[in-house]
Design a protein around this nucleic acid. Structure first.
Lengths: 228, 228
DNA sequence: GGTTGTAGGATTGTTTGCATCCGACAAAAC
DNA sequence: GTTTTGTCGGATGCAAACAATCCTACAACC
């Protein structure tokens, strides 16, 4: 066996594993919004006891993916239009902070900008009418990379939750069609602003991206968005 | 009794109560950083069983207030200089997003700006050499009000955790002395920018506030801050 | 007919107990 | 004297059982 196989194994705690499994399941839309997640059922299906499962659910509840009604059970949240706006508002706040830190760390943002532009190119390489799921994957990887380059523990942790919520909304709303070209342009603007260290341009690009994303998601609902 | 007393009562869950109690205890510095929090001990002292207590600890761990070492126990985190920078970076990102939303909601930011300025005046009313704890309280209430006016569920939730972490750092570092006048000015700049709807000024004011706060906290350590 | 009271079933909330793991101390071997 | 090793105590991780609460449905009453 190679020596690499005896690195200090970090056994993940059982609640962590459970939480991750359910989180991705929700992100993939395997649990419809509004579904009740029975403890005994899930525990049996995962082969664990209710104790660790409850702790995992506790996490997901705090992350905002589930809501807990006392003596009733746990339910997958049903994002309202206000929630969708709020998710994007928060995501933009986090990503704005991340981008500013990248620029501050390295005024040219060379490495980060390069990777981000590469992702944009990969997105642009997708022809029109390509798989929407794949497009979403690349889209989110762009934002994930941006936050990662900021190397901030807290921004990264918060962003992970927000990405899951975003995926949930995308799945729930069936990912309305949206101009690929606009999308590529918006991301390119962000990447170029980081690369150039142009803070005002970054603010414009992020605001543009958030507005169009919200518009895209709220349009099919044809419902005036509340403020809360 | 007035009719307002029969709104749908939301009984808080036991883990919520426990989490809040311990959170504030940590924020108040009743548990030194690095202290081990034994489950059996705490459970006995709070009069609950280990189950609910573990769920509460799970939350606090995810919030970043505790670290869990498998089969060893739970410990209060010891914020490193890098953590302090990260906390303020994240807090600024959240508050920046909140302030921008306030401006967007109401370009004059009249109500919010008025309350914020009132808090600033209360801070200014404190003479030099006043109780540092009281000053901190007003300081944090300013930031808390700013996020509250944005009426964003997610920003509010994230901010609550960050405020706790901030308080922990302040307690741990004994709240170094800092010019009251500078502090008042910084907050006033933020409030005035919101009141005027002046976005560039807001960015400047927030950056200024973050930088001086970090400088204030890191100075006594006389240690070059890492980037992670 | 509509409302109220009451069992039934099911689910969550909590407690208790056992298994596992880690760190520390002491004893033995080199 | 130093190193290794065995054992002990305590803490967490997990699982199962008990208790309390809530929803649903049906029957009795106004």
């Amino acid at each position: 066996m190679p020596a690499s196989s005896l690195e200090p194994l970090h056994q993940e705690s059982t609640p962590s594993i459970i939480a991750r499994k359910i989180r991705t399941a929700i992100g993939n839309g395997e649990f419809e919004p509004g579904t009740q997640l029975g403890e005994a059922d899930l525990a049996g299906r995962l082969g664990v006891s209710r104790g660790p499962l409850r702790e995992a659910m506790q996490r997901l509840t705090q992350e905002g993916l589930l809501i807990s009604i006392r003596n009733r059970g746990l339910f997958v949240v049903e994002p309202t239009p206000a929630d969708i706006s709020d998710i994007y508002l928060t995501r933009t706040a986090v990503e704005r902070g991340a981008a500013l830190k990248i620029i501050e760390l390295d005024r040219t943002g060379s490495e980060a900008g390069a990777e981000l532009l590469a992702i944009v190119e990969k997105m642009a390489a997708l022809g029109p009418g390509s798989d929407p799921a794949e497009l979403s994957l690349i889209d989110l990887s762009f934002h994930e990379a941006m936050v990662r380059w900021a190397s901030s523990k807290r921004l990264t942790r918060i962003h992970r939750t927000l990405v899951t919520e975003t995926r949930m909304c995308l799945v729930a709303l069936e990912q309305a069609e949206y101009s690929l070209q606009h999308r590529v342009d918006e991301h390119r603007h962000i990447a170029e602003a980081i690369l150039a260290g142009d803070v005002p341009a970054l603010h414009r690009a992020l605001a543009e991206h958030m507005d169009s994303a919200i518009a895209q998601l709220l349009e099919p609902l044809a419902d005036g968005a509340g403020t809360d």
